[in-house]
């Protein structure tokens, strides 16, 4: 929509014949504002004309163009976006053009809530046909910022409301290959396996997801996200989590490598607290990590795990001390 772009150099509205019949309405800031603002001239003039058309409730093509000018100056103004929607409805405008317009604005304002809300409103009106386009739109955003909170929220809404699940797990896979530390992609992965109508749900997916996650953990044991994801795969089924050899095995492997053991130890601690019976290998691996000078202080494995955690994660020492204090007294 060429006509929606703010033209440079800007011709003041007061000099445009199109607006000659409108009397601008100045801002009433009150006598002595609390947080007074030094406005730019262009901003003041545009807002004064906007106020005039808004008060007259003029839902016209020129009013639509004016909202674009205001948004160009400040995309955060709720009122302007509202009014723009009323105009789009009144004019029965082509909403595909509106999607293009939003994409332009989003380039420089992608963290703005109003833009996303507006986009959702348009996509909802367009219905399931827009699903593909919306998924592509968020992909473009993720190619710049793969953790973009608004875009993820929008994408989840699109999937639930308009569909388009077919490639979603593959897309998560792709993002995780690009950055295995991307917690948003892990979150989306969980969203897909629990909510996609095509995959059969958490229990059906568990086995393949556990293998995938274990591999991710072994590549970067310091990565918080797959550890939490692994636990999430056994949601509501703690017993399976404790009994599944893959879970304690991955802890063991990381401990034996003696590097970045924090999450392996904390997972092991949780497992032990939930009744895991440690084998000799686990005992030996933990023993080998004991800080020097602490050989005999802890009578049992689980206390030793807490002590090591306290030692290797001093910024959260109080948390680990508390975990230790909460352990049932020695059996």
């Amino acid at each position: 929509m060429e006509s929606d772009k703010v033209k440079l150099p800007r011709v003041p509205l007061s000099q445009r014949p199109e607006w000659s019949d409108v009397t601008p309405v100045p801002q009433d800031d009150g006598p002595s504002p609390v947080v007074p603002i030094a406005y730019k001239e262009e901003f003041v003039e545009t807002m004064d004309y906007f106020r005039a058309v808004y008060l007259a409730d003029e839902r016209s093509a020129r009013a639509l163009r004016l909202t674009a000018e205001v948004i160009g100056l400040n995309a955060g103004n709720y009122t302007v976006w509202h009014f723009r929607r009323s105009i789009l409805e009144a004019l029965d405008a082509d909403l595909n053009d509106e999607l293009d317009y939003i994409e332009n604005i989003a380039r420089s304002n992608s963290k703005n809530y109003q833009i996303w809300h507006h986009r959702r409103w348009v996509a909802e009106k367009l219905g399931t046909d827009s699903a593909r386009k919306e998924l592509e739109f968020t992909k473009k955003i993720f190619s710049i910022d793969a953790k973009h909170y608004h875009a993820w929220s929008h994408r989840q809404w699109v999937l639930l409301a308009l569909g388009g699940w077919e490639d979603e797990l593959g897309y998560c896979q792709q993002l995780l290959e690009e950055d295995i530390f991307n917690n948003s992609a892990w979150n989306q992965r969980f969203f897909v396996i629990t909510k996609s109508p095509l995959l059969g749900g958490l229990e059906v997916m568990r086995e393949s997801e556990v293998s995938y996650t274990v591999e991710a953990i072994l590549t970067y044991p310091e990565n918080e996200s797959p550890w939490r994801y692994l636990r999430g795969l056994y949601k509501g089924d703690t017993q399976s989590w404790v009994n599944d050899a893959q879970v304690w095995s991955v802890c063991l492997k990381v401990l034996n490598a003696k590097n970045n053991c924090l999450f392996a130890l904390s997972t092991l601690l949780d497992l032990l607290c939930h009744g895991l019976q440690p084998n000799q290998e686990i005992n030996d691996a933990v023993d080998a990590l004991k800080p020097s000078g602490q050989d005999q202080s802890d009578s049992d494995l689980v206390k030793t795990v807490c002590s090591i955690l306290e030692h290797i994660d001093p910024i959260r020492a109080n948390y680990w001390k508390w975990r230790k204090s909460k352990l049932p007294s020695a059996t």
């Binding site: 406005y39 955060g76 709720y78």
Partner: peptide, 9 residues
């Protein structure tokens, strides 16, 4: 920033 803040004063 001040200009952009106008709507959320």
């Amino acid at each position: 920033i001040s200009v952009a803040m106008e709507y959320l004063r």
